[in-house]
């Protein structure tokens, strides 16, 4: 879980092919901005929102993965559970949205802790594949609970009136909620980052990842820290679920979609790098939203209507395949982790 940062030397060793690819991207984006400035900004912010949600989900996943070697398939279910609990808090209990933003992550965190104590604790020493299978079973259970309690129909909650208005950005007006989401996500990500890199708690956690036995020798209670990290990871997923579903509504398929995407983000960013997850989450979110716009602008410029493909949902996987072909360990990954 180290942080890798770009330095001047790194930039000097970048191959010409990467420079060319970067230049092409900039040119394409500039053309698109010239053709459709309003749509461009609109989609860029949409992509940023999506990317931020992805980063929040991925943070929890890679914290748990890096720390305990547990591949938590149930992370998507935590995300979905957070969204549905916020529905109950807002609609059933009649509390304001702000209460849901605090209560839902706490409840999801507690669910995570219960599962950690009852099931996952017994799997720390076994193969990662076993934990993947066990959490897959847990996912089935959580999803069935959601279907049984909230039903399968899509649900929605109303946002507080402060956030439903639009904000004028010159070329276009974007919903204030999107800017709010990006702001909150940035603060959360920064807080988690500081917790891991600057506090004593974070220090002992990182020490535990490197050498658990030695860390326990010097008097660190590692199991309770593991449980705390599991709480944090699950709560982050629940938090992301509340933020995301307030904009798009709740669906019973959102869990599986996001756990797969979160892993795509981890692979692209590089397993073991928190910084890489943040970069690749934003990269994937923005590129998923901008690629269709770029393609339609290209179609307009070159007069080739077949170019305007609607491939938003495919972009994350295409990015992943490209990364695997040309940089298999991910953007900021360390070699040898989980291989």
């Amino acid at each position: 879980m180290s942080t890798t940062e770009l330095t001047r030397e790194d930039l000097a060793t970048v191959s010409p092919a990467w420079w060319a690819a970067g230049l092409l991207t900039v040119v394409l984006l500039a053309v698109t901005f010239a053709v459709e400035p309003g749509l461009f900004i609109d989609q860029a912010i949409g992509g940023l929102v999506y990317g931020m949600v992805l980063v929040l989900v991925t943070l929890g996943l890679s914290l748990i993965l890096g720390l305990m070697g547990i591949v938590n398939f149930a992370h998507g279910a935590f995300f979905m559970l957070g969204a549905y609990i916020s529905y109950s808090v807002v609609v059933t209990l009649g509390l304001p949205f702000w209460a849901a933003l605090i209560l839902a992550p706490l409840i999801v965190g507690v669910v995570g802790v219960v599962l950690e104590i009852t099931v996952l604790r017994y799997l720390y020493d076994s193969d990662p594949i076993v934990s993947l299978l066990a959490t897959f079973g847990l996912t089935m259970m959580i999803e069935e609970v959601i279907r049984a309690y909230w039903g399968t129909a899509p649900l929605e909650i109303s946002r507080p009136s402060v956030l439903t208005r639009g904000t004028d950005l010159g070329v276009t007006t974007v919903p204030t909620y999107r800017l709010f989401l990006v702001g909150v996500a940035v603060i959360t990500i920064a807080a988690v980052y500081l917790l891991i890199s600057r506090t004593d708690f974070g220090l002992t956690i990182r020490a535990g990842v490197q050498d658990g036995e030695m860390t326990e020798f010097v008097g660190v209670n590692l199991p309770i820290r593991f449980t705390a990290m599991f709480f944090l990871g699950a709560a982050l997923a629940g938090f992301a679920g509340v933020l995301y579903s307030a904009e798009t509504g709740m669906r019973t398929t959102m869990g599986e979609t996001f756990v797969i995407l979160a892993f795509v983000v981890v692979v692209v960013g590089g397993i073991g790098s928190l910084f890489g997850s943040v970069v690749s989450g934003i990269l994937i979110g923005v590129s998923a939203y901008l690629t269709p716009v770029v393609l339609s602008a290209l179609a307009e410029v070159t007069n080739q209507p077949w170019l305007a493909l609607q491939i938003r949902n495919l972009v994350p996987y295409l990015v992943m395949i490209l990364i695997l072909l040309y940089r298999p360990r991910g953007l900021f990954g360390e070699e040898g982790f989980l291989e």
Binding site: V119, Y122, L123, S126, D127, V130, L133, A134, F136, G137, L138, T139, M140, M141, E143, E144, V145, R147, A148
Partner: peptide
């Protein structure tokens, strides 16, 4: 809601002898 119980059975199975 049989999927819930099957999921539970599956978790137990994986934890005991995968």
């Amino acid at each position: 809601h049989w999927q819930f119980f099957l999921g539970a059975l599956f978790v137990v199975l994986v934890v005991v002898a995968p």
